[in-house]
């Protein structure tokens, strides 16, 4: 019995897996980091200058300086039934004021932050916590979005693999930095990949797509031109604007340079020549 999943993957698939895996790992790591570490707002609140402000000022001091009331208020919801699900921090209605007073009284009685939170939970129920305990059904609050993100990543990865397989089956080239052209359009059933490539229009880029010589368009154009320039194919290259030279025409020997672009060894120089030709071409429009 062969163990299929232990077969070495082709290089392109390895690259895909690495790419998808890296992104998934980064995502999961970021989520874990934010989960385990202090969240932005929490850390902001923990860096509150509550105590600092009162020490600097000539105002009255807090009864229990070891309790960070700002942090506590951010960790609890406003118990006022009329004011909706707002955090206690920033609530100033009667219910909120009462809860804040109660919090300070507990602190004055010697309770630490955990004990104050426990007192509030005992009094109001678990809903008083801005973030519930990660136990029981509550775990789903974290697990479902993370799971959905991972499933989405898996589906995307599957789509990319399927797309890669379909492209290779249609006679496409190696991906990601691999050489070769990538044809557009569907494939005729029964014909060989090679002949399909030759017969099919090879440029996705149409003349009307160019419009303005924007740099990304130039990059596309150059990608097409270099692609053909490096790997010339037989067959007619189709241009959407009939009668106009296509992208591949630009890579032919020109009067000015007198040599095919492929003969120029330096890639930067090659790109420069192509760019110049593209600029001239666009000016002709």
């Amino acid at each position: 019995m062969s163990i299929k999943f232990l077969k070495p993957l082709p290089a392109c698939r390895l690259r895909v897996s690495a790419w998808v895996g890296c992104v998934a790992l980064v995502g999961v790591a970021a989520l874990c980091l934010s989960w385990m570490g202090p969240a932005w707002s929490q850390s902001a609140e923990s860096s509150s200058a509550l105590a600092q402000g009162q020490e600097q000022g000539r105002a009255e001091a807090q009864p229990s300086p070891q309790v960070d009331f700002a942090k506590l208020e951010a960790a609890l919801m406003n118990p006022c039934e009329n004011c909706g699900g707002k955090p206690l921090s920033g609530s100033y209605c009667g219910g909120a004021t009462e809860a804040k007073t109660k919090m300070r009284r507990y602190a004055a009685e010697g309770q630490n932050e955990e004990q104050i939170v426990a007192s509030f939970v005992a009094e109001y129920g678990e809903w008083i916590l801005a973030v519930p305990e990660k136990t029981g059904f509550n775990v789903l609050a974290w697990a479902v979005p993370i799971g959905a993100l991972l499933v989405g990543g898996g589906l995307l990865s599957g789509f990319l693999r399927q797309s890669n397989r379909a492209r290779v089956a249609a006679g496409g080239s190696a991906p990601a930095g691999g050489a070769g052209s990538v044809p557009s359009g569907g494939s005729a059933p029964g014909s060989s990949p090679r002949s399909e490539t030759a017969d099919r229009p090879r440029l996705n880029l149409r003349r009307e797509d160019i419009g303005d010589p924007g740099p990304a368009v130039i990059e596309d154009f150059l990608a097409d031109i270099e692609d053909e320039d490096t790997h010339p194919q037989p067959g007619q290259v189709q241009s959407a604007a009939a009668g106009r030279p296509s992208g591949s025409d630009l890579s032919r020997p020109s009067a000015s340079t007198g040599s095919p672009v492929a003969d120029v060894a330096d890639p930067d120089e090659r790109r420069h020549i192509l760019r110049e030709r593209l600029a001239r071409e666009l000016e002709d429009d």
Binding site: L33, S34, A39, S41, G85, W127, A130, V131, F137
Partner: peptide, 23 residues
Amino acid sequence: FAEMVTGKRISLGPPFFNQFMIP
């Protein structure tokens, strides 16, 4: 959902959403 399943009210406040939405 939590209230429907467990019968207990819970809250998900800003710190919960920040954990996901910042990354």
